[in-house]
Design a binder for these strands. Structure first.
Lengths: 324, 324
DNA sequence: TTGAAAGCGCTAACAA
DNA sequence: TTGTTAGCGCTTTCAA
């Protein structure tokens, strides 16, 4: 079933059917009704692929991220998909595992599929590679010199507020559970942590240790550090998932959170309210970020937005039970 | 840049270029090299949309589910996307919120986009509507009379094993925190719970209460029931998320889990190991289910599989800290 | 207001 | 082994 059949049955040309389909002005009302009747009878629906080919547009965007299983990303993906759907765009999901080869393959695949734009979360992709992508791009969580839009979260103020809050609670020795070395956010959060604490007389490089953005690793590492430094009374985790690991470690060691140890996370994933004790964290406006990313991307796709923009979002302290 | 330009520069016809692109046998080696050189120089990549149009295939599948934010679904989506990618298919993500209209719109949209097949998780879509979908379908979590493949989880044995386990632990009064009325799995789990316990002399319809697959609701509801029935010593939650709510409620009421109350969930989402105490649960082989769904779907798309199949997966008891 | 026809980029049947 | 050409289903220009 195609436009030709509709045209035949309605006794008009395919051009006229096309005009009706696209709500063009210049169609006689009588003709229009005739065509619409045939369309309804046949339950005809135009083939988007043919349209794509002609128009050179697909009304699809892609979302490249490390792993949808990582609890931060479903919330982001949901926001992106919601906003895309609202604007008539479908959303292709790509898990890259931060694997460079996978990223390249996906970019090639979506390019060939004439996807209209892509939102990328990646530490591994290079500036050059970003520039070579042949469609509008929004980079998330990373500022770049490449000619694309970028969106970041303000780690400086976030970390500062987190540490200040722990201090205001009376914490006298604050550790940091940091993320992977190659992650830009992890690096920044470590950097600003150091900036906030390295003048303190209690400071010691031992207080800085790594959980790799992973739960199990964080449990182990935190157990070790709590054992070696029983006087730690505050802990800033580089993301919520690691903070969960820290809570687990404290629980297993019978360290009382929050009375002996205050734990604060970073991200504000919705699971934070679920754990026991519920997690105090620096909350990112995840949904808002997703919506903004799509708006920016579509702005460029539609040619409304011609300049490349950079947007920095801020975190908000969400007090819950894991801090005193 | 298109096949025509490549043909010109290589001094051959588009047909020959096409043959090279598709690795056809009947191309002179010399010609082949010439064409490949031009392709590499131009960094030419064929346009998939044109191929789609000609072939009537898109190498895309869609995944319709209620909400990627619900922690069960990212794990499923990950498995599906992994397997699809392995087979050269892209995966379109659609959140329906169990909203009937959204489902219909998505199905229409992906049909027009010539998506090759769809994996659906839905309670709301009717048998008729499933039958009217104009592409291969795999229904997840629901058996159907419609002419499509279906995959379910065996609630009967799962619930039986959960309750038996609680009994074996010495539980003398076991409650059930059930899911939404309109959810087939929730209904079945409730049904089989009743079957297992309604002959017990301690049984009481009050032990059955609802958490709507939602964390907050489950916290509230569990607090109420634990307050009214302080002798409840076992709790079977209809899914893990509700079990987390139950754990939270017990914690807030200072009910000792697992010593005074054993809690068991259903699903086996990876977050179960994160919470405190970690959650005992009836674990679904989520990844395996996702892979199987894709294999089945692609089987039908490729015409290898011509019969509609039904597959029933079984849960496995995963013992952790929330049960004595 | 309508229709004929070209063309989006590709593949494949047919011919040479 | 290679080229010519029709055609996948649509939109749009141009002419009527």
């Amino acid at each position: 079933m195609n436009i030709k059949k509709v045209a035949e049955l309605a006794g008009v040309s395919t051009a006229t059917v096309s005009r009706v389909l696209n709500n063009k002005e210049n169609v006689n009302l009588h003709t229009k009704n005739k065509v619409e009747n045939v369309i309804n009878e046949l339950k005809y629906e135009p083939n988007d692929v043919a349209r794509m080919l002609y128009k050179g547009r697909s009304n699809m965007i892609a979302l490249l991220m490390p792993d949808i299983t990582n609890p931060f990303f479903p919330e982001l993906a949901r926001a992106i998909e919601d906003e895309a759907e609202k604007e008539g765009y479908a959303c292709i999901l790509c898990n890259t595992d931060g694997n460079h080869l996978k990223e390249k393959n996906y970019i090639k695949a979506i390019t060939q599929k004439q996807v209209d734009g892509v939102i990328i979360v990646s530490n591994t992709i290079s500036e050059n590679e970003i520039d070579e992508i042949n469609m509008p791009v929004v980079m998330l969580d990373r500022k770049t010199k490449a000619n694309v839009h970028s969106i970041t979260i303000d780690n400086q103020s976030g970390v500062k507020n987190a540490i200040s809050y722990l201090k205001s609670l009376g914490c006298k020795k604050i550790g940091h559970l940091k993320g992977p070395k190659d992650d830009i956010n992890a690096q920044q959060r470590e950097y600003y942590y150091l900036k906030e604490v390295n003048q303190e007389k209690w400071f010691d490089l031992d207080l800085l240790y790594s959980g790799d953005y992973d739960f199990d690793t964080s449990v182990k590492a935190t157990k070790k550090i709590l054992t070696n430094h029983s006087d730690i009374d505050g802990l800033f985790a580089g993301n919520d998932l690691m903070a969960f690991g820290a809570l687990k470690a404290a629980h297993d060691l019978k360290v009382d959170v929050p009375n002996s140890l205050s734990v604060i996370g970073f991200d504000g994933i919705s699971f934070g309210k679920t754990v026991i004790p519920s997690l105090t964290t620096m909350e990112q406006p995840i949904y808002e970020i997703g919506v903004y990313a799509v708006k920016t991307l579509l702005g460029q796709i539609d040619g409304r937005e011609t300049l490349y923009t950079h947007k920095n979002f801020f975190t908000k302290l969400k007090k819950r039970e894991s801090t005193r």
